[in-house]
Design a protein around this nucleic acid. Sequence first.
DNA 1: CTGAAAGCGCTTACAG
DNA 2: CTGAAAGCGCTTACAG
Lengths: 354, 354
Amino acid sequence: MVEGHDSPGGTGAARRSYRVTSFDVAAAAGVSQSTVSRALAGDPVVSEATRARVAEAARRLNYHVDENAARLRTGRTGTLAVVVLSRTGENIRDFNPFYLALLGSICAAASQRGHETLVSFQAERERLWGRYQEQRKADGLIVLGTSENRAGWDYFAELAAEGAHMVCWGVPGGVRSDNVAGADLATSHLIAAGCRRIACIASETSPQRQFTERWQAHAAAMKAQGLQPRLVPITPGLGREEQGRAAIAAMLAASGGQPDFDGIFAACDEIALGAIHALAAAGIAVPGQVGVIGFDGIRAGIHSSPPLSTIEPDFAIAGQLLVDRLLALIAGQDAGEDPLVPVRLVPRGSTARN
Amino acid sequence: MVEGHDSPGGTGAARRSYRVTSFDVAAAAGVSQSTVSRALAGDPVVSEATRARVAEAARRLNYHVDENAARLRTGRTGTLAVVVLSRTGENIRDFNPFYLALLGSICAAASQRGHETLVSFQAERERLWGRYQEQRKADGLIVLGTSENRAGWDYFAELAAEGAHMVCWGVPGGVRSDNVAGADLATSHLIAAGCRRIACIASETSPQRQFTERWQAHAAAMKAQGLQPRLVPITPGLGREEQGRAAIAAMLAASGGQPDFDGIFAACDEIALGAIHALAAAGIAVPGQVGVIGFDGIRAGIHSSPPLSTIEPDFAIAGQLLVDRLLALIAGQDAGEDPLVPVRLVPRGSTARN
DNA sequence: CTGAAAGCGCTTACAG
DNA sequence: CTGAAAGCGCTTACAG
């Protein structure tokens, strides 16, 4: 008998600390312990009559398999770790809601596939942790979150190089939005709204590889229409909104206060919202003088003034693709081509230029 | 030798499938396996020289304790399950961001206290699941999410009654915002902004007990100022924003289209944002004709038009209180009085009446 | 301060 | 179709 455990015949007060095991179920059902294990696991070798008797006994005793024992024996955990990277010192309330929604869709997709999700928010460099497989807490790892946490992405890239089962959001080799289709949609939408001098607030050097893809696809789409693309690079280290404000401030300063652009394609919605704020503060009408479109489809865009046009990835599919790719990796299958999450144009007030 | 495991002397290709155990570390450090266990657990009985030798060997072999084995032995999991209830069929993108932020703060607080978080989004009645203790996947359970999922709350209330270690957000016996202080702040702020005929969009019958508290505290504050409180009840089953729109529509319909109110205290920000939309659609100026304040401090309120004044709970403290209360329960300590999360007034444009 | 041994509660070859 | 037995990898009394 182990410390702290009472026998089934113990006092009522200690009832909760006694653990029902498969031996108890076996006794109640009049079979052996191994038969209980097989019956509850749905092993087809067990006769239907026996299975039903065992199931009934298990139900009556409120028996549930001790997953630690099962995992110790099988080596499988049925669990996926999900790491959400944020910036050091960032208040959770200021965290990009895009990643929170993505987290939700990952958990839902994992659950549909019979897996648990062990979630961890990580920021500080000294507290980064990804050795879930070694600890046998999970069979693999999904990483998402802000690209601004460089140390975090470096740490996890190293684990992946060591052979950990890992899928990342937003990087080549992982899963990301269909940025080319999205940039095409955004660009043609701005052009259809009458914009010609379009500035793209993005980056060619950000660790956020998706920003580069969006910019490059946008530039190609502009050129295809005989228009001149223009990149306004974001300032590393700032929050996304702040980056949007700073980009507008820099452009206006360079052109003497009057806008020399009539459209903005922002690499993400948070940047777009910051840009809209800065434009409003400078007395420039959106969408009257400048049309603005973002990328990501975050909820705040519904409520902004004006409401923000955006390119929205399909969140449910995003979670499914991440989970399925990780499960394929765990199963030792070739994951194949990088899957892309389909996107759609959501036109709202910020591009409603008559 | 277990199926699928290679020996340390196996081929390089199979390297990752061999598991380093405490016996390997023991051999490398020249001590017994039990000493390895004690040394790595920080047992002070182990001499410093031995501890250092073991730690070095473990580091060299990239050894990490198999948590399934440790948990099987100790009976403790070091894991807290977090269940997020949503409405059936709800798209994760439409999910109230308040709960996502709360989820983040819970995970952060648990991590600070050395615990993992097993997160599960649940909606459908047939797939509700909370027997984490029986499965030994977690030592206890935190439940949060929309009060609109009645079946979910009933299910978890029953588990709590059976004696599960559980703490819920937003209900008596659990952890919730300081609704009385918040309602007082909101009411006096509206009055200071010149509002006198204030309507409170809330509920006395909603399963969301916090709404009732906010309304009652608001009503008391109004009476203390010699003003007449007015409750506009929400329509069960709708989304929060829709409830805000519906409440405004009902009030305007009852008064012949002209507002017979000059202030709105909404029981949550999503309702407030819906109300602002409906007021704008009806051509009623906010804050000019009607001041609006919400509750919860969601991010979208920063971007709305006008920006939404709100009562914001301290998210970091909310997560800490939930986790600490659960850990106390698990440790068998009396949890004491219901803790309240402190709130603060965040005045923005929606109450800026001259 | 360290080691030998028991046992946590399962799953799964191996026999029958 | 079912049972007896081994063993997953730890932690922790028990001895020394």
